[in-house]
Design a protein around this nucleic acid. Structure first.
Length: 237
DNA sequence: AAAACGATCAACCGCGCACAG
DNA sequence: CCTGTGCGCGGTTGATCGTTT
């Protein structure tokens, strides 16, 4: 046996509120106040259930409602409160006079959640890049190769600095980065990394290997592809 | 210009809690 | 205690509007 419905759904209007309905509700509440939501529609002359009237008043018609987008500071505050309180929207909303729980919930679900997801995937990507970079560097060192890099803004031969630069570059995905590898054995050829997809020029055909003296990457993304290639191609020098 | 898609937000629904009888 | 009732809360839906294809 289920719970009794709060109103007779057959005889009650649903959906969006009209201007006339809004006016009736506002007039009634301002003149009489709220004593019992169940009686409000009857007394105000509305074909709505009490629950619907309450929601309309609280979320839309209340005179003390604050309108407009939330500021960056308010968003940060919501994130902080949410981490402490979880999905307790009414509690969170109580910290923002003029804002409703429904509004905060909507903002969380549409805007903030998305922003946080994006942030964490960025962090994850940065971590993965760092890990690959460490592998790359140790592989290069194991093979007795000298590895140097330079960016437009800085030149660095320190691996630690390089890692930092690389991560930053990857995050920005826009800076020019050039990598130069000098091998102890004699290698030939210049490679344009943009053609690495499919038949790779770096690998050469079949067993015949050749190695680039210099690899110019037009973006950090190219540079990362190079690292990825190097890590996954066992027959590199 | 129109269809498809995505974002936003008002409104609804069902559940749990508080409280009166 | 037990039961019925009303309210508030959180999850979800669906209409609408703006943007992209």
């Amino acid at each position: 046996m289920g719970r009794q419905p709060c109103c007779d759904k057959e005889r009650v209007k649903r959906g969006s509120w009209t201007v006339e309905e809004d006016q009736k509700l506002v007039d009634f509440i301002l003149n009489n106040g709220i004593h019992c939501w169940r009686l409000v529609p009857k007394l105000a002359g509305l074909l709505r259930c009490g629950k619907s009237c309450r929601l309309r008043w609280i979320n839309y018609l209340r005179p003390d409602l604050k309108r407009g987008a939330l500021s960056e500071t308010e968003e940060q505050q919501i994130i902080k409160l949410h981490s402490n309180l979880g999905n307790r929207w009414s509690k969170i909303a109580s910290h923002f006079p003029g804002r409703t729980d429904n509004e905060i919930k909507n903002i969380w679900n549409t805007t903030i959640k998305k922003k946080l997801k994006l942030q964490s995937s960025d962090q994850l990507a940065a971590k993965n890049i760092e890990a690959d970079m460490k592998k790359f560097i140790s592989k290069v060192e194991d093979k007795g190769l000298v590895f140097e890099t330079s960016t437009e803004s800085s030149k660095s031969s320190s691996f630690q600095e390089l890692e930092q630069n690389w991560t930053q570059e990857m995050k920005l995905m826009q800076a020019n980065l050039s990598i130069s590898c000098s091998a102890s054995t004699s290698m030939e050829g210049n490679v344009n990394p943009s053609s690495w997809e499919g038949e790779s020029n770096v690998h050469g055909e079949s067993d015949e290997l050749f190695w680039a003296d210099t690899i110019d990457c037009s973006s950090s993304w190219d540079a990362y592809n190079f690292v990825d290639d190097f890590l996954h191609y066992e027959n590199y020098p």
